[in-house]
Design a protein around this nucleic acid. Structure first.
Lengths: 360, 360
DNA sequence: TTGTAGGCGTTATCAA
DNA sequence: TTGATAACGCCTACAA
């Protein structure tokens, strides 16, 4: 009946041999086996060998769950990501996973799909399963009041995103500065009317990026025009969705700073489909610098955020807190780099064309 | 004996309240609390309410580890993926994760990065942490002899890839048929010399796809030319790497069936850089149909494999086996769809141009 | 250097 | 309907 992948020494109904089985086989007590497991130097070399041999003969596997119950740390970290279909967050997840492996932790993963209810479920589930800490990139619309009690007593690092009112450690890029430089770049290329596209006001990340955008406008003494700000979902579809409004504007923008790259790419594709040549007619800069940004046509300029490094740093911070037992919130900001590619446009032409269009 | 009757919540160093705390607070025994937890109908409504209330007052969290120790199933599934920087495997991972959530399982994730040693480590670690089963997309070069003992007694589903000699359940696409149809399509478009690009002979998936390629050649009565077969890593770089050999061939191919889409995209970009116009000079078909295939230039034809469905099916199969206790290996093959886009080329022109080139 | 005796949080088995 | 008690596999004393 119960075949599995042909088992060898499995004994007992559970099919898993225990420290006692090993002790029996090696002719020692279970304490001795325990000492061998923890690499103690108290145990005689000959004994150690007998024990080790017995273990491999039985196919013994250490039961961390039992050890944890007794008091050991669990070695499990939870990783809750809002959207794994965004390549940026995949990069982050890879960074998290890598850092966990280095630290001998093992990550639970959950994709909340921007769904706060689901996020609540998975966080609870992770706690039940004994996660020692959490790396969290919260879903849009998360209720802090509901989430907070589930997090009590456990170290949490919010990575990339952060929730106002949730005091945890944070690892995030320097959003404001990045957005400021990108906007300044578009302005310097001659774009007087720069739109801001994507995300929702409730998102802290967007507030930061938006602040950078505003700052650059101020520095260039360009009046802020609220009608050039577009809220959308932070995915390809969101970027594409704004194109009709963007083009039908009474005084159209000639460039856009996008909330992130997937929005920017959605925008570029839709603009292309509408006959607007991005790079000459219209300037676009995204945020994140995902791999695909190099391969769009035209190639997408972007504020580069090293997602993998972000994930790695988050885990390192978490592990440090786990090791020290000090969960005092700490914030790490990572610098960004503006990567200029063809999508910016030189924009003298863009302005001209746009004026022609608006005069129609 | 430190049971402490202090009416206040979280006690003990762990900061985590237990079933005993809840029992004290509700004025019942821990057995009763356990009954409430398992949703038993034996417990009086009033009691149940008192207990539930005590739980939320104390912020009680169920300790699955302890329950597992006592004999419950662990509710944890391991997911070991060879390469998360390939979007196809990300799709698969998302499918796995979704299906786990539906089944109230929670997935450990590990990215083996095509590194067999690392894969061994993470599989062991997952067992130690009590994973009840494994979804595995094995790394290239995995040693079955080393891996097998770690898998004994636990249900395993190999998804997408499979190792010869490792008898487990399998969920995979119909590789041979897909490759046959794709190759036939290239031939029907007039391509007489079709290369096969990517992967390594040791990979079963490649053997299958290669068999489909050979079959289509045979059916068209085209002689197989071994010099048109190229082994490479299964990533962007691998696809790009073959271009020099492809172009310097004494009788160049006019089309290529690629092992997967990332190889195909790498190839297309490198061909483009070398001045070969894919779609007119050269036909390319990939495998997987990742999202990016729609957006390359020219858009990439591909044998579509539904990665998300593959992952979902793998988990469902695993859960079924876990529930029944019957781990008898089972194989599920998923049909593929050939998606034709511009990269195929109409190829009359391709042949002509290629002949011109080879006459230089 | 090795053995014995709890106890971690939960569930199962009996009694009450 | 509820309560007492014995496991589950491991680790930490403490004893031999």
């Amino acid at each position: 009946m119960n075949a599995g992948v042909d088992g060898q020494g499995a004994k007992g109904r559970g099919g898993r041999s225990t420290i006692v089985d090993v002790a029996d086989r090696a002719g020692v007590s279970k304490s001795t086996v325990s000492l061998v497991l923890s690499g103690s130097s108290l145990v005689a070399e000959a004994t150690r060998e007998r024990v080790t041999e017995a273990m491999s003969e039985l196919g013994y596997i250490y039961h961390r769950g039992a050890a944890t119950l007794r008091g050991a740390r669990s070695g499990v970290i939870g990783m809750v990501i809002n959207d794994l279909s965004n390549p940026f967050f995949v990069e982050m997840a890879i960074g998290i996973e890598q850092a966990c492996q280095v630290g001998e932790y093992i990550p639970f993963i959950a994709n909340s799909v921007e769904n706060p209810a689901r996020q609540l479920q998975v966080v609870r589930s992770m706690r039940e399963h004994g996660a020692a800490g959490l790396v969290l990139s919260p879903a849009i619309g998360t209720s802090v009041a509901e989430l907070k009690p589930l997090l009590s007593g456990m170290p949490v690092v919010q990575v990339m995103r952060r929730l106002p009112g949730l005091k945890t450690s944070i690892v995030a890029p320097e959003n404001k500065d990045g957005a400021r430089r990108a906007t300044a770049q578009l302005i310097a290329s001659g774009h007087g009317r720069v739109a801001f596209v994507g995300g929702f006001q409730s998102m802290v990340v967007r507030q930061d990026r938006f602040a950078g955008y505003r700052l650059a406008l101020d520095e260039a003494e360009i009046a802020f025009d609220e009608s050039l700000v577009f809220e959308t979902m932070t995915n390809y579809a969101g970027g594409a969705a704004v194109v009709p409004q963007l083009l039908s504007h009474h005084a159209p923008a000639t460039a856009a700073l996008c909330f992130n790259d997937v929005v920017a790419i959605g925008l570029i594709r839709a603009l292309g489909a509408a006959g607007v040549a991005v790079g000459s007619d219209f300037g676009v800069i995204g945020f994140d610098d995902i791999e695909e940004a190099q391969h769009t046509l035209p190639a997408l300029s972007s504020v580069a955020v090293n997602g993998r490094a972000l994930g790695t740093k988050a885990v390192q911070l978490l592990m440090r807190q786990l090791a020290s037992g000090d969960f005092e919130p700490e914030t790490i900001l990572c610098p960004t780099t503006l990567v200029i590619r063809a999508s910016c446009g030189t924009a003298a032409s863009a302005t001209a064309k746009s004026e022609a269009r608006s005069e129609e």
